[in-house]
Amino acid sequence: MADLIFWLFWGLTVASASIVAFSKNLIYAVFSLLGTFIGVAAMYIFLNADFVAVTQIVIYVGGILVLLIFGIMLTNRITQTVISESSFQKMFGLTVVFAVLIMVLIPVLGHTWTNGEPMAFQETIHQIGTLLFTDYILLFEVASILLLGALIGAATLARKER
C-alpha cells in the first residue's frame, strides 16, 4: 500500500516536471513546479528525512517558487512570451544526454541491490541540530555570512540613489 502512494508521488513529480520542461506557457511551467517540489518532499519522507522534506517545502515553495512567480509576473506581456522552440545542435545535445544517462546507469546497474527490511522511522531533527552546531559549525556560519552578504547586496542594489 505504501508502494501505491510512492508511485502516486512519483507520477506527480515526473508529470509536473515534464510540464515544466515541455510547456510553452511560462506560467504553467512555474506553477507545475509546485507539484515537483511537493513530490520531491514526499520522496524525502519516504527516505525518513522528515526535516529535509519540510525544509524543502519552506524553502522551495514558500521562497523560491514565489520569487519565480514574482519575477515572471513583473515581466511585461507574460501571456505573449514565446519560448524559442527551435532546437539547434540536436545531435550534440542528444549525445550529451545519452552520455549522462549512461554515466548514471553504470553505477545503478553495477550495484548489487539488497532488499532489506524497511528502517523504522526515527526523528532526525535532534541529530541535525546537534551536528549543525558541533561538527559543521564552520560551514553553517560560512553559509549564514554568505546569505547576509547576499541580503546586504540586494538591499544596496534596490536602494534609490539620492
Binding site: D50, I57, V58, I125
Partner: peptide
C-alpha cells in the same frame, strides 16, 4: 510528528 510546528509553518506557505 516530531516536526509538527515546522510542518504547519511550511504548509501554510503553500
Amino acid at each position: 510528528m516530531s516536526i509538527g510546528l515546522y510542518y504547519i509553518v511550511s504548509i501554510s506557505s503553500i
